[in-house]
């Protein structure tokens, strides 16, 4: 639990850490959007007052330490299997609020089958999908989401779609299914988008509370370290280039 410093006379507290977050230091690189997204999830849990009945599922990827950051119960899943693990938990205890937090390699490559089928079953879970276009944790290799021409450690000459495949728009694919309740793509590169992303995350949790079924929030994220950019350049890159391949907005919403 956090150690609250006394607020001096005449001062007003305007900013504090969400209750859902612990005091553990983030393991994310400085300036990485993972940090913003993790905080937004925590804020949503606070606002809905569900901390004591929430179970998070951490992926394998840069968010593998997620259980340390949160004050709720957590399960660490094998690479790509978070949606299957979430299914097991939710089916065993439907009263719990279950969310996964997964990278693009985790969710759209190795775990594509688990993602598609959980969505298709309309599992009543919330999926936070952090798309940074690379495998961050393992050193910036190509992900299924990597942009055409983008250089990564495994596409040193840039991604050539005819050789390496096209950017996989898994949210568009999932939106074609009858199972999901809500599929949306958001970003967090500026304040306006952060506010919208937060609303989407809230909605994805609310859907679960209302029993509406599978809700996924894709969030275009950055990897300044492996993109070899400053955090500011990385944010700008998302705003100028990534959104062209991955347009923002709701892809499916049953209301």
């Amino acid at each position: 639990m956090s150690v609250e410093a006394a607020i001096p006379e005449g001062y007003v507290k305007v900013f504090s850490k969400p209750k859902a977050l612990s005091d553990a230091k983030y393991t994310y690189c400085p300036g990485c959007h993972h940090g913003i997204i993790t905080r937004l999830v925590a804020e949503a849990i606070d606002e809905l007052g569900i901390l004591e009945r929430t179970v998070g599922i951490s992926p394998v990827g840069c968010a593998v330490f997620l259980d340390r950051f949160f004050n709720c119960d957590f399960v660490q899943a094998a690479h790509g299997r978070a949606c299957a693990v979430a299914t097991g938990i939710k089916r065993a205890r439907p009263d719990l609020v279950v969310f996964t937090y997964q990278g693009d390699g985790d969710l759209a490559a190795i775990g594509a089958a688990e993602t598609v089928h959980a969505a298709n079953r309309g599992e009543n879970i919330t999926v936070i999908f952090v798309n940074n276009g690379v495998y961050g944790m393992t050193g910036g290799e190509m992900a299924p989401t990597t942009l055409p021409g983008q250089r990564t450690t495994t596409t040193p000459l840039g991604r050539e779609p005819r050789l390496h495949g096209y950017p996989l728009k898994i949210s568009e694919m999932l939106a074609q299914l009858e199972g999901p309740a809500y599929i949306t793509r958001q970003a967090v590169f500026d304040y306006r988008h952060i506010v919208r992303a937060k609303q989407a995350i809230l909605k994805a949790f609310r859907n679960q509370l209302e029993g509406k079924g599978f809700s996924l929030v894709e969030i275009l994220s950055t990897c300044p370290t492996n993109w070899r950019m400053t955090p500011v350049e990385a944010g700008r890159w998302v705003a100028e280039h990534v959104v062209k391949v991955y347009p923002l907005g709701d892809l499916k919403d049953v209301g």
């Binding site: 899943a77 299997r81 299957a84 979430a86 299914t87 097991g88």
Partner: peptide
């Protein structure tokens, strides 16, 4: 009880992992 036909054996064992983590016999 809960019966679920998974999309693969990989998914099935990870569902067991989840259900067992949630504290039921799986």
């Amino acid at each position: 009880g809960v019966f679920l036909q998974a999309e693969s054996e990989v998914a099935a064992i990870n569902m067991v992992y989840g259900a067992a983590a949630a504290g039921v016999r799986a």
